[in-house]
Simulated scan of single mutants.
Amino acid sequence: MNVADLSRRGFAGRTGAAPGGRRHLYATPERRSRGMRTSHRLLLRFYHDPGYDFSRIEVEYADRGAPGDRSTVRGDRVVALDAQYLEVDAGTHVACIPYHRVRRILYDGDVIWARKA
């Protein structure tokens, strides 16, 4: 699956429109003006949508001390998606990564979401 397929399914640059051009019932003008969805909402969508394999997701996040201050975790290592952070199996413990540290989300190597610089 490539970026164009994801765009057709409603992942790229959403402004409140559902796939097929329908408007959600909750898409008030305030909600539509927000622009692209948050990293948390996008991860929840991939996690719960049976049409996608969450293990093919890669989350790149800011990690002070790591090479280039960036680290990447694959979807199969994500334990839970909490409201404020994602929980990741770090081998010996579960690490909590706040969503504000997420820089990019990739699906099969294609960038699906990237934080504005």
Rank of each mutant, 00 (worst) to 15 (best):
D108I: 00
F11K: 03
E87P: 00
Y26I: 13
R64E: 14
D76I: 03
Y107W: 06
V73K: 05
R56E: 13
G13D: 14
F46I: 09
S55K: 07
G35R: 10
F46H: 12
A17W: 07
D89F: 01
R103Q: 09
A114H: 07
Y99S: 05
G21I: 11
G109M: 01
R9I: 02
T15S: 10
W113T: 04
G65S: 08
F11H: 08
E60P: 00
D110R: 07
G16H: 08
V88Q: 04
G65I: 13
R8K: 15
R74V: 03
V73E: 04
A114W: 02
G109Q: 02
V111K: 01
A95L: 07
Q84D: 12
Q84K: 13
V111L: 00
V94H: 13
P67F: 11
R23L: 15
G35H: 06
I112H: 03
S71Q: 11
Y47E: 09
R56D: 14
G35D: 08
R41W: 13
P98N: 08
E30K: 10
H40F: 11
D5L: 12
R37G: 12
R8Y: 12
S33P: 00
C96D: 05
P19C: 07
R8V: 15
R74N: 02
V59L: 06
D53L: 08
Y85E: 14
R9H: 10
R23Y: 13
R9V: 00
D108C: 06
P98I: 02
T92R: 09
G68M: 02
R31Y: 12
D5H: 15
R64Q: 14
R101M: 05
G65H: 14
C96G: 11
I57Y: 02
G68W: 07
N2E: 08
S71G: 07
R37E: 15
D69V: 04
T38D: 15
Y85W: 07
I105A: 01
Q84R: 12
E58Q: 07
A83E: 15
H93R: 09
I57A: 00
D49M: 01
R9T: 02
A17K: 14
R56G: 06
A66V: 05
G35Y: 03
Y99E: 04
H24T: 13
R70H: 10
H93F: 03
F54E: 09
G65A: 11
V88A: 00
M1C: 05
A62F: 15
L106A: 03
Y61F: 15
R115E: 10
A18D: 04
L43H: 11
F11T: 01
R103T: 10
H93S: 08
E58W: 00
L6H: 14
V102I: 15
R103M: 08
R32M: 11
I97V: 15
I112F: 01
F46A: 14
D89I: 00
P29Y: 11
S33N: 05
A4H: 07
R14W: 10
V78W: 04
V3D: 02
T92E: 03
V3E: 03
G35A: 06
G75N: 08
T28G: 13
F54G: 10
R9G: 00
G20L: 08
